[in-house]
Design a protein around this nucleic acid. Structure first.
Length: 434
RNA sequence: GUGGGUGUAGUUCAAUGGUAGAGCACCGGAUUGUGGUUCCGGCUGUUGUGGGUUCGAGUCCCAUUACCCACCCCA
């Protein structure tokens, strides 16, 4: 064990995993571009207050999972007329709050008409006990749309999520719900409280406490499994106001037109306070119990609550660790490796030349400049998993040639040293046929 | 924050309380410029850390720490 290790819950990404990561990120950017999402990059740190106000003071994330610290210039900032805003800082636990802040700060919604479609990709931080699929530094890719109130846009967003699943050959279940709005949710909440209060004795300790504080989440309790025990639990979908109910119908209709496979799950509850109306989650078998790979919904009031002009908005985020854990192992193939060797000191200069020439082409190649015996060169290439090797021995150098051998088939061939294009063409051809 | 499991070589794992080992990996070799297999040789340890019990602790006890899994919650 080395003296220094990575901080708990924060992981190194090494080859070959790093290749899967960068390819996945590349694909996500391309997919986002198809529906005209443009990238936004916000800082990893924001003021603590932004998250407290945005995500909700009582949310678990804010209450116990934030990485909070004080800015060294805290005192100066505190002297600002606004008061102490900005004094305390936090590593971002999710992506939306910072995007909303930037959207407002730079008047994006004012300078051009909506919808404004943005995507982000990057690290987030939550102070939780790590377990399979849950880490203190984790990464998300998210889409956010500002300035469009329609349920059809929600449907398009969910469609984008399903495109991502399809692209990566992931089998996920898309579950949608409407969680109402400030006009209808409070009444539903009361109904739930009324429903569960008489049953308090039958609930676990956690749930008894949650009856009043968070009855919606109580439904998800795994200890009591309320959904299995009672089939007459009031459903939000039966208590929506006319506007929410109508929007929910439009959402489902549009999803059907997009051919997005989904199920209605009236028990979906989002963990953050800002969601209204459309809420959805995507689950998949990640090998652990953390099977939610993506989630999102509409947040029409957040921009105004953060200090901007009233702007309807909707968005979702996908957890990249979790996504990658369900992307098929062989989804990304590795380009075969080519290697170059010299058999004696006199071949090294020619080997350097080959490296120089091949470096201009998109082949995966590396050389070893310490001369080796023929047999050792083959052994080494094998150990490194190389397929193509180029050899400069005495005969080759004398004739201005290079010996090529395909370690997979055993074929070999001699090229003139100036036939670089022929060599590259051959490598590319083999790659396509692979 | 709560519970459970595991810490021994680079790695995966052994070792009735009695001298810490094996496979893999790595390095070298099996006579001339043809590999993967095989064979031979070599290298590697504060047994996570600190106490305690014992003639003697990798092994038993206590504490501590790290990782893993699960709860809570979420991506």
């Amino acid at each position: 064990m080395s003296r220094y290790t990575a901080v708990k819950g924060m992981n190194d990404i090494l080859p070959p995993d790093s290749l899967r990561w960068s390819r996945m990120e590349e694909d996500l950017r391309l997919l986002a571009a198809r529906l005209n999402y443009q990238e936004i990059r916000t800082p990893v740190v924001e003021s603590l207050e932004l998250f407290q106000r945005g995500l909700g003071e009582t949310s678990d994330v804010v209450q116990k999972e934030m990485y909070v610290f004080e800015d060294k210039n805290g005192n100066k900032l505190a002297l600002k007329p606004e008061g102490t805003a900005g004094f305390k800082l936090a590593l971002k636990p999710e992506g939306t709050a910072g995007v909303v802040r930037a959207f407002i700060e730079h008047s994006v919604g004012i300078e051009k008409p909506g919808p404004h479609k943005l995507f982000y990709i990057g690290p987030n931080f939550r102070y939780e006990r790590p377990q399979k699929g849950r880490y203190r530094q984790f990464h998300q890719f998210g889409l956010e749309i500002f300035g469009d109130p329609t349920p059809e846009m929600d449907a398009e967003l969910i469609y984008a999520a399903s495109m991502i699943l399809d692209h990566f050959k992931v089998k996920g279940e898309i579950r949608v719900n409407s969680i109402g709005c400030p006009a209808c949710r409070p009444a539903y909440r009361e109904k739930l409280i009324e429903y569960f209060r008489p049953k308090a004795e039958e609930l676990c300790g956690d749930c008894r406490r949650r009856i009043d504080s968070n009855p919606l989440r109580l439904i998800d309790c795994k200890v009591d499994a309320p959904r299995d025990r009672w089939n007459d639990i009031p459903l939000i979908t039966d208590h929506l106001c006319p506007q929410c109910a109508s929007d929910f119908e439009r959402l489902k209709k549009a999803l059907a037109i997009f051919h997005v496979p989904f199920v209605v799950d009236p028990f979906i509850v989002r963990g953050l306070d800002y969601y209204v109306k459309t809420a959805f989650e995507i689950t998949a078998d990640t090998g652990g119990t953390q099977n939610a790979i993506a989630g999102g919904g509409r947040y029409d009031n957040l921009v105004a609550e953060t200090g901007g002009a009233a702007t309807p908005a909707t968005g979702f985020a996908i957890g990249l660790e979790r996504l990658l854990s369900v992307v098929p192992e062989d989804f990304y193939g590795m380009q075969p490796l080519a290697m170059g060797f010299a058999l004696f000191d006199g071949g090294v200069a020619d080997l350097v030349h080959l490296t120089k020439h091949l470096s201009h082409h998109p082949v995966r190649y590396m050389a070893e400049y310490t001369p080796r015996k023929f047999k050792n060169a083959l052994q080494k290439a094998n150990k490194l998993g190389a397929r193509h090797i180029f050899i400069f021995g005495e005969d080759e150098v004398k004739n201005q040639q290079v010996l090529y051998k395909d370690l997979a088939t055993g074929d070999q061939k001699t090229f003139g040293q100036h036939e670089v294009m022929a060599i590259v063409a051959m490598l590319m051809d083999k790659e396509i046929r692979k």
